[in-house]
C-alpha cells in the first residue's frame, strides 16, 4: 500500500484488527448491497461479542444471519427483523440484545456519526417505545426526541466500482446504507465488483469520496435475491 492506494489483496488483511466486543457498522438493505465476503471473513475469524449496526440481519443462512448461528453477535441495532427466524428466536429468548431503531433514524445516526455530529432531534418515535429515556424538546410547537449518532470500530461496505484511491460508485438500490456506513467506521473496509485505475472515474459521478475508505478489496458476489418477483410479460402490470 502506498500513498492513497487502499487496495488490499486478501480478506484476512481486509478485516485485520477486528477483535472481540467491537462495534461493526454494515451497509445493505435486506440482502441487497451487503458486503457478503467481509461478513464471511468475520464468520471465519470467529470474532465474538460484536455489536452490529445494520438495517436488517440478513436471513438465516445468508448475510449477517450467518453470524447469529455462531453467537458472534452480542447486540444488534436494526430497524427490521421480520425475515429472520433465528434473529427473532434469539431476541425473544433474550439471548441477543436488540435495539430496534427506526430506519430513517438509523440512517441519520450513521450519517451524523460520520459527520462528527453527536446527536440530533427528530420527530420519529415521539410517543413510542423508541422515545423511552430520551431527551424530548419542542421546536415550533412540535415534539422531538434526541437521538445519539453512531460510529463503529469497523464499517463494512459493498460498492459497485471503485478506483484504487477508494472513490466509490454504488449501483441502483444496492447503495442504501452503504454510503453512511462508509463514513462512520474508524476503519472502513469496502468490497467492490470492479477496481479501476485512478482517474478513470468521473469525479462528478463519485458517490463516496475515498477519504472515508481505509481498505478496498475486489470480490465476487452471489447477490442472493430475497423476494424474487417477476411478471410474465410486458403486457401485465405489477402484481
Amino acid at each position: 500500500m502506498a500513498g492513497f492506494d487502499k487496495v488490499v489483496s486478501s480478506y484476512e488483511e481486509a478485516m485485520a484488527g477486528l477483535t472481540d466486543n467491537m462495534t461493526v457498522i454494515a451497509g445493505g438493505f435486506g440482502l441487497c448491497g451487503i458486503p457478503e465476503n467481509l461478513i464471511s471473513e468475520i464468520k471465519r475469524k470467529g470474532t465474538k461479542g460484536l455489536t452490529l449496526v445494520s438495517n436488517n440481519c440478513g436471513v438465516d443462512d445468508f448475510g449477517l444471519g450467518v453470524l447469529l448461528s455462531d453467537r458472534q453477535i452480542k447486540k444488534i441495532v436494526a430497524s427490521y427483523v421480520g425475515e429472520n427466524a433465528e434473529f427473532e428466536r434469539q431476541m425473544m429468548a433474550g439471548e441477543l440484545e436488540v435495539e430496534l431503531t427506526p430506519q430513517g433514524t438509523l440512517a441519520e445516526k450513521m450519517r451524523a456519526g460520520g459527520a462528527g455530529i453527536p446527536a440530533f432531534y427528530t420527530a420519529t418515535g415521539v410517543g413510542t417505545p423508541v422515545a423511552e429515556g430520551k431527551d424530548e424538546r419542542t421546536f415550533n410547537g412540535r415534539d422531538y426526541i434526541l437521538e445519539e449518532s453512531i460510529t463503529g470500530d469497523f464499517a463494512i461496505v459493498k460498492a459497485w466500482k471503485a478506483d484504487r484511491y477508494g472513490n466509490l460508485v454504488f449501483r441502483k438500490t444496492a447503495r442504501n446504507f452503504n454510503p453512511m456506513a462508509a463514513t462512520a467506521g474508524k476503519i472502513t473496509v469496502v468490497e467492490v465488483e470492479e477496481i479501476v485505475e485512478v482517474g478513470e472515474l468521473d469525479p462528478d459521478q463519485i458517490h463516496t469520496p475515498g477519504i472515508y475508505v481505509d481498505r478496498l478489496i475486489l470480490g465476487t458476489f452471489e447477490k442472493r435475491i430475497e423476494q424474487r418477483t417477476v411478471r410474465a410479460s410486458s403486457a401485465q402490470g405489477a402484481k
Binding site: Y80, E88, M92, Q103, G104, T122, G125
Partner: peptide
C-alpha cells in the same frame, strides 16, 4: 411477534 418498525415510524412522523 417482532417485526421491527422498518421505516414506518419515520413515515408516520414525517
Amino acid at each position: 411477534l417482532i417485526k421491527g418498525m422498518g421505516g414506518a415510524m419515520d413515515l408516520v412522523a414525517g
